[in-house]
Write a protein that binds this DNA or RNA. Sequence first.
DNA 1: GATGTAATATAGGATACCCTATATATTTAT
DNA 2: ATAAATATATAGGGTATCCTATATTACATC
Lengths: 99, 99
Amino acid sequence: MHGNYGCDMRGMLSFQILWLLSRRSMHGEEIAEELEKRRGEKPKPGTLYPALKDMNEKGLITGNKKGKIIVYSLTSNGKKSVKLAREYFIRSFGDILGA
Amino acid sequence: MHGNYGCDMRGMLSFQILWLLSRRSMHGEEIAEELEKRRGEKPKPGTLYPALKDMNEKGLITGNKKGKIIVYSLTSNGKKSVKLAREYFIRSFGDILGA
DNA sequence: GATGTAATATAGGATACCCTATATATTTAT
DNA sequence: ATAAATATATAGGGTATCCTATATTACATC
């Protein structure tokens, strides 16, 4: 189990990354810090970087290398994806926030 | 990949079940139908029932058999869990729902 | 009581998401 | 130049969440 919530709260990392990148372009460490703010814990490199690699290979994000950092942005497919995925997310979980 | 959202939207099934049961006690088929309303697709029996079994073994829910149906309710641990997990969920995803 | 339907259950397989540990590349500090 | 710190990357392992397919149990209908 992950965290001390009684139930498993893993999931939708790639969606959350897409969401963050839809607000502004970021490099890996910045993404990790944003996730830490929300989740309470910073994802380990072995969690984050394979996810970014996978999303890049799927054409959702694109990386722009500047020295040792790589700034990621959404591709047009990534933008379409985050729009659709957010609609699904709200349909699925919207009432949890409202109540 | 699951659904046509570009990114994987699996996750937190047990949390969603806890949330549904915090509104009212239900049996498996009712839970499946509530999930279908939200997700657009009904989880297959091979998805739902192992999850319920697991949650029961973890002491989050308890089942009351009435003929061929089993009505599930939250245990006190389940109630604590859904409260904590909901706080985590809102911290993690609240801005997605709000924006 | 035999047949069919509804509800639950189990077996087995795939993938995303998590981790720990280790490695590489670039920048910064000494 | 050497060392330390930062950012990214890979290898390998565990679990939840999904699936398809099959089986069981209880109720309903004839």
